[in-house]
Amino acid sequence: MRLIDYANPTRFLGLTATVLPWLAVVTALTFAVGLYLVVFVAPADYQQGETVKIMYIHVPFAWLSMFCYVTMAGSAFGTLVWRHPLADVSAKCAAPIGAAFTFLALATGSLWGKPMWGTWWVWDARLTSVLVLFIMYLGLIALQETIEDPARAAKASAILTLVGVVNIPIIKFSVDWWNTLHQPSSVFRMGGSTIAASMLVPLLIMATAFTLLFLVLHLMAMRNEILRRRIRAMRMIEAAGAE
């Protein structure tokens, strides 16, 4: 049992050691192309002027805030169903990165909203749902940090993650309902489906770049976490041997 547990993380460490440098180079190149297009090529929006440049980072952050949660949900499933030790590690490491990206989605949205809506924050349905998502990330991190035993913490946070998966659509729906009830419909709504190709291409490249960045950070954090668990196990063996 124990031998199998450790075999896969070791293989994972070897694999990521060869893949990570390449992935980092690809990420940097994608960012270089994307940022070049955003700064020098992408046109200003006829309504929003140059502030539309915030969209090229805001939308990828919003996308990643959900992508991270989906990653965590998949890992949570892996933890509970297959009890795979790498799944624990993946879920635990995705949470702080997801929280950071969700925070950035909120912060860039706020910086975009101030010149466009004239206010830093509106209780718009989308913003409110993302805020609730951010709080859920923080709750998951708090749960992981509070339970000392890593295996038990992983299972508890896996259950909470899956409960969140079931609840997020309900929260989204109820916040939409709440918003239409309270909000006068004068609030500016974002572009919709009609987005020009000259904006779409840079946006997609930036979204790809940020997704790659997430992968790089996630893999690096997972390597750290595997080492941390090894150190923990070795310390325990050492302590048991010293008695």
Binding site: V132, G139, N167, I171
Partner: peptide, 10 residues
């Protein structure tokens, strides 16, 4: 409370 409050929003 931190864990449960977001889930009670609906």
């Amino acid at each position: 409370a931190i864990l449960v409050l977001p889930l009670t929003v609906p």
